[in-house]
Nucleic acid binder design. Structure first.
Lengths: 139, 139
DNA sequence: CTGCGACTTGAACCACGATTCAAGTCAAGG
DNA sequence: CCTTGACTTGAATCGTGGTTCAAGTCGCAG
């Protein structure tokens, strides 16, 4: 087996992340260096996969800590499975809301109401997104 | 017309936001109190609409500053319209990514791979989500 | 061996979005 | 009037997600 290890700068370049971010993720337990070349971290190429996942999850609004928990997930961890399923449901909700917001935004871009927020269509769409109002959420 | 003004605590309760958040939004120019009752801010009920919008947009990843710009949007502001349309496109992208992530997550919750991140299905889904950034031309 | 330069480190700093806090202010009730 | 209690304020603090920086360390070329 040859030496497929990547230098941190290489990983940074390929992943599009700053080296400082890679070290940051390492501190947070999201990734691990395969070893060192001198002081330089070297990584297995597969770390690029992980970084893709991390970037993706971050973009989806997951916190770094949360991602860290998912990254060490093993099938035996039923609890984590549950959390993942719950997260999937959260995402469903979020997707619905985002879709509505997108539609509202799209409408707003062509709407004639003076303060755009006053547009009834806009309001209605937004109202659907977040408005218990009758139900006090919690205090 | 009677006095439909709401006390800050009332607004906080109904909107589910902390009073401090309301004041924070006011500082940032996102909302305005209708007046004062003593020192107490009073609000027009419509502020609840706005807060719904704000909460929604925040949840969608918009910064408070950005939301502030949208809230004062008038039809004559073509620039803002363009930004809104652009945001709608962004949201589209985000929705796609979120959907994929949701599917991956859903799969992960029932997948048997030892470190779940190693699951090929999972990896593939994630790979689709994050852009390659640069060409893996050489090491 | 001596630089050079790229990397290392921990710590400091930044922006953001709030929350918390001490101290002040107010309306109303006893 | 004086207390009470909810609210006010600005300022400090917090958590998150990093970046930046000074100083140190390494591999390698000369």
């Amino acid at each position: 087996m040859d030496e497929p290890l990547l230098d941190i700068s290489e990983v940074a370049r390929r992943s599009g992340l700053a080296p400082s971010a890679l070290r940051f993720y390492e501190r947070k337990g999201l990734i691990a260096a395969a070893g060192r070349n001198g002081l330089r971290r070297t990584y297995h190429p597969e770390v690029l996969q992980q970084l893709g996942l991390i970037t993706c999850a971050r973009g989806a609004g997951f916190s770094v800590a949360e991602i860290g928990r998912f990254l060490v997930a093993r099938p035996s961890d039923g609890d984590l499975r549950d959390r993942m399923a719950a997260k999937a449901r959260d995402l469903d909700q979020r997707i619905v809301r985002l879709t509505r917001l997108r539609d509202s935004l799209r409408h707003a871009a062509v709407c004639d109401h003076e303060p755009i927020v006053e547009c009834p269509d806009f309001k209605r769409a937004v109202g659907n997104v977040s408005a218990p109002a009758t139900e006090p959420a919690q205090s």
